[in-house]
Design a protein around this nucleic acid. Structure first.
Lengths: 154, 154
DNA sequence: CGCATAATGTAATATCGTCGCAATGATATG
DNA sequence: CATATCATTGCGACGATATTACATTATGCG
């Protein structure tokens, strides 16, 4: 099967934060202290984090309780702005390392350590999209995740 | 992209039930009244059903309360025996119309009416599996679902 | 029968997600 | 500056999804 691999910049640290802020602003959303705290917390996890995990982390960081529903609201905005992604099979979220380009991400989720890496393979995701179309379905958001074990846990 | 489409029998009604029972037995599990009730309930839904939906349906059908955790237990067995599948992005389950053959299913889930159809495209799913392997990941269970709108809802 | 094992019942609890409305903060405009 | 307006956040309640531990009942088998 022919695939098209994609090259792009992955931001990290300060750069990642800037990229996230820019992406939010570009999509017409504000970048508030609260949102920055949520993003910081999200980015501080090495695995997909649940909204509750993030709420706890933000509560710690700010010294004042932040309720999960506030976090959900902000995560929804992040996902809408492509600043975060939701891992459906883990009910959890990941910071997006390249909010500037839009892909149907493929997540590889380790059932042993819980970590997740992501792949962008437009050939595959377009294949999924076109298979859906061929079936008379109008694809909006492909969810492509692979459960298994990562190299470290093998 | 080259794809390999697969042909196989889809069971329905009595035949579906028999196929499910056989698949369970073949994988060393019993086929009890309770399990049949759960399967009947599951198969009676036209959309992915939550464990709670099924618990309600079974409670109705048997005239005696059946708790969700009993349903979860049985659904787990069904999934293990390929008699049911879990739609991750919907937190719900579907009866498998062809328990006899093993595929990485692709679900097309309508965000409007909630219905889901499924596709088997081994070319695509193998593509996903091999992309995972190429990334040093050991794929066990690909989760390929597409959210969007079905032909009826367009 | 009597025993071992599998299946189911039951209650409690954990985890995930949403709702409505109040309070606060930012922005615009006279 | 005053205040009207709108976006953001706080807060509590609730609903939905999922798991655990342990008790009870059913089933298969000597």
């Amino acid at each position: 099967m022919a695939t098209t691999l994609h090259k792009h910049t992955h931001h990290e640290g300060e750069g990642l934060l800037d990229a996230a802020r820019l992406a939010m602003v570009k999509s017409g959303e504000q970048w508030t202290d609260m949102r920055q705290s949520v993003f910081d917390a999200l980015a501080s996890f090495t695995k997909p984090a649940s909204a509750y995990d993030i709420a706890d982390a933000v509560t710690q960081a700010r010294g004042k309780r932040v309720a999960p529903n506030s976090v959900y609201r902000i995560l929804d905005l992040f996902v809408g702005a492509n600043v975060a992604m939701r891992v459906e099979s883990a009910n959890a979220y990941l910071a997006n390392a390249h909010p500037d380009c839009l892909h149907d991400c493929i997540f590889l989720v380790c059932d042993t350590c819980g970590s997740a890496t992501h792949l962008d393979d437009d050939g595959l995701s377009n294949g999924v999209r076109s298979a859906a179309k061929k079936a008379g379905f109008n694809p909006v958001r492909p969810v492509i995740e692979v459960r298994g074990t990562c190299a470290d846990c093998d």
